[in-house]
Nucleic acid binder design. Structure first.
Lengths: 202, 202
DNA sequence: GTCTATACGTGGATAGAC
DNA sequence: GTCTATCCACGTATAGAC
């Protein structure tokens, strides 16, 4: 079996069970390989498998999200193309988020650099679309963070409520989240300082 | 040691390490109790501890979030009061989200009913504030879901990026998320259907 | 490359003394 | 109530045959 083929199956285990829950027994049965065979492909053991899974995710991100986002199509079109990729990757909201599974919990210590990198690359690409649509760079970055944070949160809510509607809604409003020019949300200058809002306002 | 005192410490282990990562050794050292003593307080073992931790969260939610949300103060004030509680509970975004840790991964099967209940109660209370502010019930429910999903997602992003700014931003814009009357976001009737947006638009 | 067999530690859980 | 000691199953990892 090719290493890449195996990694594709490992992804499903890690994102369903998390790093701790991804036992060698499960990784073995998901790939159809015996434990010893897994160690042949991944001499570094479970940690190397986790790393390979994150690399695989980086590839998915590159070809499914970044390329559409960086095209020269209409900004809304680019965002909808990415939304389709996200929708497919998370099986319409029924699959848990790999990044969240690894970012929360202990695995974050192990893979923090990779996770941070993937998130930043994704955020930058999204912000780029907003900038192309004429939005200020600082605001664009915040909107891009909002978009990703909404996707992650929607996946949690979908899992917790057993209802994928919030996920579908977040995807469909992605263009609004990034590109809307509504003054009450667009002008970050009217925003009150977080600390003031929390502790001074009342 | 009182059971409640112990549960308070168990919470920190579960939300830092997740259900699988919350080993008896860690639970033991966090409480200062030996394994056997833990089983004296929680005869059902780890599963009972997990359940007790979720009950504890329900209490936090009730007294820190629901009571302020149901007061008869100004809607914005009520939301800011809740934001302060959330900010404190998650230590300004530095603590992982207990609900997310348990909702993702295997533990969701075990505690799905409790998790769903906590989420629904929280969403209902938030939607109530929006309804009091004159927002249509259906839209209010969606906005409430958005608010919670943003909080969860912000905690993931904070952990992944090692930066709590997104979390602070989400909290500070909570009143906007729930109460804004900006037409381009408020009128859900103008929203395109998710599936259409994703598969038909392009 | 993949297997069987195995080593070794840890995790969950219990018995029984104090 | 809390402890020490112990049990067994499982998790990670390796050796070595094919």
């Amino acid at each position: 079996m090719l290493r890449e083929e195996a990694v594709g199956r490992l992804v499903n285990v890690f994102r369903q069970y998390g790093y701790e829950g991804a036992t060698l027994a499960r990784l073995s049965s998901a790939t159809g390989l015996g434990k010893a065979s897994l160690y042949h492909h991944f001499p570094g053991g479970k940690e190397e498998m986790g790393g390979a899974v994150l690399e695989h995710l980086k590839g998915k991100l590159e070809f499914g999200m970044l390329i559409p986002l960086r095209s020269n199509a209409d900004p809304v079109e680019r965002l909808l193309a990415m939304a389709r990729s996200v929708d497919a990757f998370y099986n319409h909201g029924q699959q848990a988020c790999l990044l969240a599974m690894l970012a929360l919990g202990e695995a974050n210590d192990m893979f923090h650099t990779q996770i941070q990198h993937v998130l930043n690359v994704w955020i930058d690409a999204l912000a780029g679309v907003a900038i192309d649509a004429g939005i200020d760079a600082t605001v664009a970055r915040q909107r891009a963070e909002d978009a990703i944070l909404q996707i992650q949160g929607a996946l949690i809510l979908a899992k917790g409520l057993g209802d994928t509607a919030p996920f579908q809604r977040v995807l469909s409003t992605l263009p609004d989240t990034l590109l809307t020019t509504c003054p009450s949300l667009a002008d970050s200058g009217t925003r009150i300082d977080p600390c003031q809002a929390l502790y001074k306002a009342r």
